[in-house]
Amino acid sequence: MSVTSFKRRGGAEEHDAGSVSRPPTKERHELEEKAERSLSAMLALLAPAITTNVHDEAMIELGASAEMFVEPLGKHEVQVLACALYMERQDLPLGYADILKLTDRFTGKAMNITMVYRSIERLIDRGLLCQNEVVDKGGNRSRTYTIHGAGREAFRLAVMNSQLLAEANSHVAA
């Protein structure tokens, strides 16, 4: 199993005033290794529950029921939650501009602003992200966002699901 690496646009790191700086290569490599170890450990813990058929009947009923099935997180929603967690770890608030900078930094392409707005609204509606109104000294209003505990758990499960599906695809391709 591998964790997607950080990407750089055009093969070179780009810096501009006000942008979030890219982690050095050694730090980025250490982050990738830690993430892979964490994901491997989580999947190892979940493997017995995933591979047994003890709960198949209940799972089939839930999966087939239109009322019980909830759409999983989309790619953009997962990216916004990742940005929220990243900014939280930096003890900084999350705003629209941060999402644009961070998605550009980690994927090589900034998320479309329309997708940022839509993803934030969906995450708020789902109770995974919280909107905070901020008023500065000049009376200007802005919005920042924080992630809820349910958002953290949904993010972790989405990443684990993505890794599981990627590994399954690698077995099919082999």
Results as ranks from 00 to 15, higher is better:
R8W: 03
R9L: 13
E13N: 09
G18L: 01
R22W: 01
P23N: 04
P23Q: 07
P24K: 11
R28W: 01
E32C: 01
E33K: 12
K34E: 07
R37L: 05
L39P: 00
A44P: 03
L45N: 15
L46V: 08
P48T: 05
I50M: 15
T52G: 13
H55F: 13
H55K: 13
D56H: 03
E57F: 05
E57M: 11
I60M: 08
E61N: 15
A64G: 09
S65Y: 01
A66T: 13
E67G: 08
V70T: 09
P72W: 04
K75T: 15
V78E: 08
V80E: 03
A82L: 12
A84P: 04
M87D: 01
G95M: 09
I99R: 01
D104G: 13
R105T: 00
F106D: 11
G108D: 00
M111T: 02
N112D: 07
N112E: 05
I120L: 15
L123Q: 03
D125I: 10
R126F: 04
E133K: 09
K137V: 10
G138I: 06
R141A: 12
T144Y: 00
Y145E: 04
I147E: 00
I147D: 00
I147R: 00
A150G: 11
G151T: 04
E153Y: 14
L157Q: 11
V159C: 03
S162N: 15
Q163G: 07
S170T: 15
